[in-house]
Write a protein that binds this DNA or RNA. Structure first.
Lengths: 338, 338
DNA sequence: CCTGGCACTCTTCACATCCGAGTGCCAGCG
DNA sequence: CGCTGGCACTCGGATGTGAAGAGTGCCAGG
């Protein structure tokens, strides 16, 4: 167990290192934080912290820098979440309020988050899995060609073409549309397969093929679109990674392009509350020198998707967490209103 | 006017520099290309080329590197477009054929282009301006709330919410839907305003407010969505910019985030044929050390949007142009089929 | 347990040196 | 008139040396 003062020393090291991006020595520490003890004492504490693996020195006779483990302790025990100031909160709200549709909400959120944190922002589109169906629409484009449009309560719209095995009349189309909506409107996605199971039975033989085709397309849409989409922004902030950014930036850019990786990353993060993944805690190797701060957001009490930022392990955790939390909260509000 | 041999020297310089990324000297040139003359002669030619501004030396006693003007001459007079090999063409077609919808086509195109050229790829979504309306759909979500869905011949779908001034019955809705489609289906976007001008006249007084609201929303959609969308990929290739990439990468990333900038860039490019913008020829300052190769693509003879790549001025122009042209051609085919 | 002192280690920077690639110029040759 | 070989010159990059400075670990004393 570490003494109280040693924790203070660790906190001071993290804060200074985040600020200066340079290894911090015992003398500088005592000068900038009044710990009430001499450099020599701090040196002893540092030696202890190093033994425990919380800090390390790049080379002998250099200052110390926090390790991933050190940041972990800092985040868990030493740092709070820095709340946004009132003007900042107003700015967030104003900025998001201008959005006209879901795409716009997500786009604005990404920009906002990137600007506030000065890091790379990642926002997941609201998931279909936990959404409910608002409406299903069928349009006849050609005698044997339909378009299926699915509208969710989060404002998301998905469309699919359906090639019918046989021509399908307007009356049957209207019938199917009505039956479909009366069964699934307002219901959760996960319930839909069960609810439409026997729908084809109500139709004439000649139309059944088309109906089952439509239904399977609908179910496919629900499943396929579980492959969530993402929006990313603020990649220019990658240049603020530190002096060695040329080495680090490539794998990070590659990770950002692989939406699968990012989605997995967000998916692994805890479902409730904010998650911070530091350095090697990230399963994906290319992100081993980054930290990911993420949190779920949603229109109701339940999270429908996640958002977060990717930045250097050497980041301002309290500030970043504050920004991420605030943005998530306001996005949730916006979604609830629309 | 430059002699034939001097042009050969310039070509050799460009090719070597693109390959090695290092200033190329007279001796190396004579060794790698059999120009049939001695280094001394080449030196004279180089001096002349430098006087004309086609090449420059980073410092005295270094080799020469091409200037923007030199690349320009190379592209205009010395380089052809390198056609794709048959296997490459097959790979392109196979890869694009797997696409399921418009988003997927664009996403695959971006990936493909980035991989083929090993540079940053930019693909513009097919424009609405030159498209035609395939279908307009109206859905009743609530008594006084409609959803307007616009489907284009390029497979693009846009939706808008419409808040009605008064409740709007199902019968009136069906009527409006039918009238609307009979007038605009298959017509060009630019013709739509004229075609729906007097549509409200056919309705009862109480419904007219809603009809005009719907119509103005429709017209807004046409105009607003002229703000085209883009997809970008292959940003990890920015790390291949050269030794000084840390300096260059930031403004480029910023430019890529500003879709407005990119759209303007693509917009300025010539409407027909391939356009190559080299270094300072790009109006946007952040892209002054990049070249942009772009070309229009479309389902018919007419281009509906553009695609291209952004790379270092020191790029393999013939290969890049070949890849861009081939991809544009195949995307056009795919769009025509769907 | 804290503190001041001290010897030690390493990095960093400035400065000097050397080497070689590449140039420009010139005189000579076909 | 254009090409060529020769030659002196320039300059950047690599290498080496030395001094300075930051930081550490350890120890003896309060």
């Amino acid at each position: 167990m570490l003494s109280e003062r040693r924790l203070q020393v660790l906190r001071a090291i993290v804060q200074d290192y985040v600020g200066t991006e340079e290894p911090v020595g015992s003398k500088a520490l005592t000068e900038r934080h009044n710990l009430g003890v001499s450099p020599a004492t701090v040196r002893n504490d540092m030696a202890a912290l190093e033994d425990e693996g919380f800090i390390a020195q790049p080379h002998t006779s250099a200052g110390r820098i926090p390790t991933d483990k050190g940041y972990r302790l800092f985040v868990d025990k030493l740092a709070g979440v820095k709340p946004m100031t009132a003007p900042e909160r107003r700015a967030i709200q104003n900025f998001l309020d201008g959005a006209v549709d879901l795409d716009d909400v997500v786009a604005r959120t990404v920009r906002l988050l990137a600007q506030l944190t000065r890091q790379v922002a990642v926002v997941q589109y609201p998931s279909l899995t936990r959404s409910t169906v608002r409406h299903v629409e069928l349009l006849s484009l050609a005698p044997a060609r339909l378009m299926l449009v699915l509208i969710t309560d989060t404002g998301r719209v998905e469309q699919r073409m359906v090639d019918c095995p046989a021509p399908f009349g307007e009356a049957a189309l209207a019938d199917l549309r009505a039956r479909l909506n009366s069964r699934v409107a307002g219901r959760r996605f996960s319930d839909v397969p069960r609810l439409v199971e026997d729908l084809a039975d109500a139709f004439e033989n000649e139309d059944r093929g088309t109906v089952t085709t439509v239904l399977s397309t609908l179910l496919e849409t629900l499943v396929e679109e579980n492959e969530e989409r993402l929006m990313i922004g603020g990649t220019a902030n990658l240049t603020r990674f530190g002096h060695d950014f040329p080495l680090v930036i490539r794998p990070v850019l590659e990770a950002l392009e692989e939406q699968v990786v990012l989605l997995k990353l967000l998916g692994e993060a805890g479902d409730s509350g904010m998650t911070v993944r530091i350095g090697h805690e990230n399963a994906y190797e290319g992100l081993n020198s980054t930290s990911v701060v993420s949190v779920g957001y949603g229109s109701g009490g339940e999270a429908v998707a996640k958002l977060g930022v990717v930045g250097p392990t050497r980041m301002d955790y309290p500030g970043t967490m504050g920004a991420v939390r605030a943005v998530a909260r306001y996005v949730g509000q916006i979604l609830a209103e629309s």
